[in-house]
Amino acid sequence: MRGFLAVFKRELLSLFVTPTAWALIVVFLLVSGFHFYALVVHFATNADLSVDHGPVQAFFGESILFYLPLVLLCPGMTMRLFAEERRSGTIETLLTAPVSTSAVVLGKYAAALVTYVAMWAPTILYVVVLRRAGEVDWHVVGTSYLGVVLIGAGYLAIGTLMSAMTSSQLVAIVLSSLVILSLFVMGVGEFIFDEGLAHDLAAHVSVWSQMGELSKGIVDLRRVVFDLTLVVAPLFVTVRAVDAWRWG
């Protein structure tokens, strides 16, 4: 894994000395801030007496305002990872350094993941705000954030792969948004198909019901395994794809 740390640090530095990361984080915080505000107003004016349903559940996964940023911002974080190196040619100096391809891929991926976590970190303030007005179950908050990281990790891995497929950042962001969106829409199939294989399959990949469960504190190992598959498989293919350039 020689070179992992160097690649990781360089990638983070580049993300934060250019406007990319800041722009994405600002957009995300605007959207999620509005989302939270709307929810708080809703719960303040409408008494909701159900035990397992409150602002936390609503915030994590009950509206499109939770998923839209995931689908659009994750590809934005990963689009430049490989596409930019290929466009500018720096991939040549990177791959002729004595570092393994997997170290390069993982270093870049880790940088994107850290940026993603940094993007979500300020939202903990919302929970702190809620805490002032009432009870907060920290276990549920914990599993909700676990879901956020697991799903994001998968989406970022897909984005990393798509970035390695092209030398155009635009193509990378469009491709990964498309794949992530298809995955999301497949999950929605759970509510469309009644019974049978299609329903089960859709339910298995459904991000919507995964977040629904996690925001109620239910951790299903099957879903965790699925999320991790979504991380490992694209990254593995990315390593292969990057190696394949040498022989192109």
Binding site: A6, R10, L13, T18, L94
Partner: peptide
Amino acid sequence: MGYMPEAVPLYPELRVEEYLRYRAELKG
């Protein structure tokens, strides 16, 4: 090996010293 490619691709957003320190770390 120390290799300098034809078009000398560099990261424009990094400072010279930052870049060289990164390259030194990358090269072990």
